[in-house]
């Protein structure tokens, strides 16, 4: 599944970029993230708990950041596996100044497998969009927290 879109953050690209490389910030912003633990350079182990309507499940996975070109772009790789299935996402995020804020555009692929892939077809697209939206909303809240 192809995923693309954009979101505006209320702080400049440098700040936005730094926030998005910060594991503590990512841990707060990634929906359902319970822990994010550094395992290597730009590589983290993640525990997630997803709950969507009656759907719910625990996932364990990895987050990796590559191809960093601060403050313009980086690639985010996320994968998670749980009893109800697995998911893998690979996206390129581009940051561009937009007024006082930053326009973050993203483009990538997402793969969902296992039981949830089989029953959630009509929901995967909408859910992915909702989760991305929540991620950026949470990220936006960082402004208040960290100035």
């Amino acid at each position: 599944m192809k995923i693309s879109g954009s979101h505006t953050l209320q702080f400049p690209p440098e700040k936005a970029y730094t926030l998005m490389q910060d594991p503590d910030v990512l841990a707060r912003a990634i929906p359902g993230c319970e822990s994010l633990e550094k395992t290597g350079e730009d590589e983290y182990r993640m525990k997630m708990k997803m709950a969507l309507a009656s759907f719910s499940g625990a996932f364990e996975g990895k987050v990796r950041i590559t191809d960093q070109t601060p403050p313009q772009s980086f690639r985010l790789l996320v994968e998670g596996t749980g009893k109800i299935g697995f998911m893998r996402g690979n996206g390129l995020l581009k940051l561009a100044a937009s007024g006082a804020g930053t326009e973050v555009s993203y483009e990538g692929d997402a793969l969902v497998g296992g039981t949830m892939a089989a029953v959630g077809q009509r929901l995967i697209d909408g859910t992915a969009r909702m989760l991305i939206k929540r991620f950026f909303e949470k990220l936006g809240e960082e402004k208040a927290a960290s100035g």
Partner: peptide, 21 residues
């Protein structure tokens, strides 16, 4: 506790273990 009404969405999810209240 998880409220169950007609169960038309919840029960199929439980059968597949996508939901486990």
């Amino acid at each position: 506790g998880k409220p169950l009404s007609g169960g038309m969405s919840l029960i199929p999810m439980m059968k597949l273990r996508l939901a486990a209240p």
